[in-house]
Design a protein around this nucleic acid. Sequence first.
RNA 1: GCGAGCGUAGCACAAUGGAUAGUGUAGUGGCCUCCGAAGCCAUUGAUGUGGGUUCGAUUCCCGCCGCUCGCACCA
Length: 584
Amino acid sequence: MPVPFNLAASLDASLQAAATAAGLETPFAAEVRGADPRHGDFQANGVLGYAKARKLNPRTVAQQLVAALPAEVTAAYEVTIAGPGFLNFALRAAGLLAWLQAHARAEQLATGAATTRAGESWIVDYSSPNTAKQMHVGHLRSAVIGEAIARLLAYSGAKVTRDNHIGDWGTQFGKLIWAYKRHVDTTALARDPIEEFERLYKLGNSAAETDIAIMDEARAELVQLQTGKPESLEVWGQINEASLRAFQKVYDQLGIRFDLTLGESFYNDKVARIYAELTQLGLAQESLGALVVFHPEHPRFKEQPFIIRKSDGAANYASTDLATILYRTEVLKSTGMLYVVDKRQGDHFEQLFITVRKWFTAIHQPVPRLEHVDFGTVLGENNKPLKTRDGENIKLKDLLTEACDRAYTLVCDKNPDLPEAEKRAIAEVVGIGSVQYADLAQNRSSDYLFAWDRMISLEGNTAAYLLYAVARIHSIFRKLGFTPGDPATETAASGLETPTELALARKLVKFPEAIQLAASQMRPHFLCLYLYEVAGEFSAFYSADKVAVDDAPVRARRLLLCARTMLILENGLQLLGLRTLARM
RNA sequence: GCGAGCGUAGCACAAUGGAUAGUGUAGUGGCCUCCGAAGCCAUUGAUGUGGGUUCGAUUCCCGCCGCUCGCACCA
């Protein structure tokens, strides 16, 4: 009989069937969940609520249910009733080994995972920086979390389209083009265009702030751009091209590749229809010269406007976001969109989504699933948003470079004899991975304290700890001359015995639940925590149980544990967007 | 002012209404003639406050205190 991929889900189904067989009333929810290891591997708490609602003795109900369990469940698990009516399930050693034998390769895990969200389709909207400026630390979380979520959803079987909704059409261009025309330094532009554009933008911005006449000239530049004056479009095109090249360097480091890069300019000619439709439907109205949407039934948005066209007639991000949803629905046939955006923009998305629901309902357009996947702010050690000492935003490029430099120092310290090129390569993986992992390892909703020392210190729940575990396993196979996952070796494995072998195995078989939990809540930290626990169990196993023993069946089963640990750690880290190493 | 979110050990973080609230760091005490000590083992220490719902509350509801964020043309 085949070994189920997701043991908890399978157990839940068995219990559901047993409930029917035992004559329990519907609805009965088994409520299977992972258990504290002291109680077993899984627990089912559903009996408590069921018995309570019907004034039954929960332990009696539990006994009825256990009596109706199919043979394969009682064969795989030791089942006990505990406390007021908890059902505890502890996998027998043979069941653990069977699962590990059945899931020996990445494809087998992938196949198992891909059923969860088969048939779903999502556009993931993340990163989305503004052109003409460099990406800074504020862009980190959206990129890192967005990528991890995209990978998790795709792994779970969903069709995922990654869309980088860049800000390439904002008011910044008026000031920038104004400054470009008067102050461009062509040699600087040739050397590093993005630096020069940034300098020009700052120059234009401060000039406009101090002089109203300049502000008006900048506005005029913007109008010329928006009305399609070729000379303006030429400069604008240059800016975007240079920006995208700079972005791509960062994306390459972070392992990000987009399917679509449809920025605000793409929707420029699509906003007029929005104004017309929303006005015609009575959703939008003029207010103080702007076109706005109010939601009378909403306590806040009955008075807080959703501005879809500014009083100067220009579009803003509400206009383009509306046009974007329409385009994705009508043209891309999208049924679900995720916005991986800072939680401070919560009101915007709430207003956007409410507006779309009313609008689409009125025009008989299917309403897509829309979700704001929010995240907290990156804070510095002073608990304020992270900045450089002189109050500037930290460039993402510089931040990643510093991460690699710090990792390099560490590699040289720990492993000085490696060839220089390899030390650099390791530092890159460890440095970038540490930044990604630190961001992913905590609940995305909370603000996140950026601290170099903790991030790359290699102790605790860090990328380096996990990468180290992977590297050690590679080292074992190198040293002993075995191939990870080789069936010829693994068929000789004897049953798991020692407490550390069993603890590791019990953790490994819960990979499916960890993926499922992280993907369903779109919270990668659940996967991080799981991987950290795997690495911890492995380290304990590694120091307690020697792999290189003469007893061949014992050695085989320990090699099998090493191979599966490696497989799951590497798979998991990959899902988070990290690279792994065979040596570090 | 209105609204949203957050208060868990010295610090940083977990806990899908379940059993004795977990982990890291810092502190203390052990473990390298032994597969990578970037490691392992042991140990000290916490739910802001007052109520409520529940068989069971860090989790859900209400009050208070404290912090953060958002609230008309930036995104």
